[in-house]
Every structure is written in structure tokens, then in C-alpha cells.
């Protein structure tokens, strides 16, 4: 359903194979703490991700994701507490609905939906976070070609 295939690429100022720009929105309680734990365990990751800390995945306005692509992001990653484990008890349920809709919507504005991913990473899942980052960067690099 890619009407304008890879439209976002033209907005990418760098557009180099090795360098990709990825922004990640992480909830403060699970995933940001998980990313911190990955750091504490010195789990090596690619340098391409910039993390923005938000209180809850439910705080994420879908606009942020579109805005990020608009501003030239090659990929947008969202991660929050596992469903049923939200620090605010139900924020990630709302997030899940919104993010799924956004994911399905992206092809309509010409963005490959693989450029957007949402994950559930808990504060103790340092290794999972590392894996998520490595995989996501790999996918984005593949799409960028």
C-alpha cells in the first residue's frame, strides 16, 4: 500500500547507508529504566538512537511520531511497560491501541510501516532492550538500502 514508496527518504538530510537517525520514546518506569539497565550492564548498541523520556507510553501523542518522520527520522521506536504491568495501571493499553492505528496508517502517507515499531520492555529486560535496538537499526538500515 505504499503510494509514495519511501517518501520519507527524501526528507532525510544524511541519506547515507551507515548513518541512520532514529528517535525512541521510552516510558520512564519500564523501558527507560530497561535502557538504563542495558547501560549499566554495558550492553553494546549502535549509536543511531536518541531517546526521549516520557512518563508513560500512554503519554505519547501520535503527532510525535508523524512529526518525527516529518523532521527526517529514519525510524521511530516506542517502548513501554508490558501490558498489565503499567506503572499507571492502564496507560499502555491506550498506547497499544493508538500505536497500532498509527502503524497501520503510515503506509497511507507513504511511509514504510517497518520504520515504526512499538515494543514492551520492562526495567529488568536489559538484554531485550539491546536486542530491540540492534534489530530495529538493522531493519532501518536495510530499508535505507
Amino acid at each position: 500500500m505504499n503510494f509514495i514508496n519511501e517518501g520519507s527518504k527524501s526528507l532525510n538530510v544524511k541519506n547515507k547507508k551507515e548513518d541512520v537517525k532514529i528517535v525512541a520514546f521510552l516510558c520512564n518506569w519500564c523501558s527507560y529504566a530497561g535502557a538504563d539497565a542495558a547501560g549499566t550492564s554495558r550492553l553494546r548498541q549502535p549509536e543511531d538512537i536518541r531517546i526521549i523520556r516520557v512518563p508513560c507510553s500512554g503519554r505519547i501523542n501520535p503527532l510525535f511520531i508523524l512529526k518525527a518522520f516529518n523532521l527526517g527520522a529514519d525510524g521511530v521506536l516506542v517502548s513501554g511497560c508490558h501490558p498489565n504491568d503499567c506503572h499507571y495501571s492502564e496507560g499502555n493499553f491506550y498506547a497499544r491501541r493508538r500505536l497500532e492505528v498509527i502503524k497501520e496508517f503510515l503506509p497511507f502517507i507513504g511511509i514504510d510501516k517497518r520504520r515504526f515499531s512499538y515494543q514492551w520492555v520492562s526495567a529488568s529486560e536489559a538484554q531485550k532492550w539491546q536486542k530491540v535496538v540492534i534489530n530495529f537499526v538493522k531493519i532501518i538500515k536495510e530499508i535505507n538500502g
Binding site: 528517535v23 526521549i52 516520557v54 512518563p55 508513560c56 500512554g58 503519554r59 505519547i60 501523542n61 501520535p62 503527532l63 510525535f64 512529526k67 518525527a68 523532521l71 506503572h87 499507571y88 496507560g91 491506550y94 493508538r98
Partner: peptide, 28 residues
């Protein structure tokens, strides 16, 4: 301070201190 309301408000009338839409968009 979870901010669910801010992401839900259809007309940006509610915002979370310390994590406003404005701040996050500036970061972007």
C-alpha cells in the same frame, strides 16, 4: 502525572507539567 489525558485531549487543552507537547516537540 502519567499524561494520558494530554495525549487524549482532542484540542490540546490539557498538558502535563514537565512533559508538555511543546517540550517534546522542541526535543524533536
Amino acid at each position: 502525572g502519567c499524561g494520558l489525558c494530554e495525549a487524549t485531549c482532542p484540542i490540546d487543552a490539557i498538558s502535563l507539567n514537565g512533559f508538555t507537547d511543546e517540550m517534546i516537540l522542541e526535543e524533536l
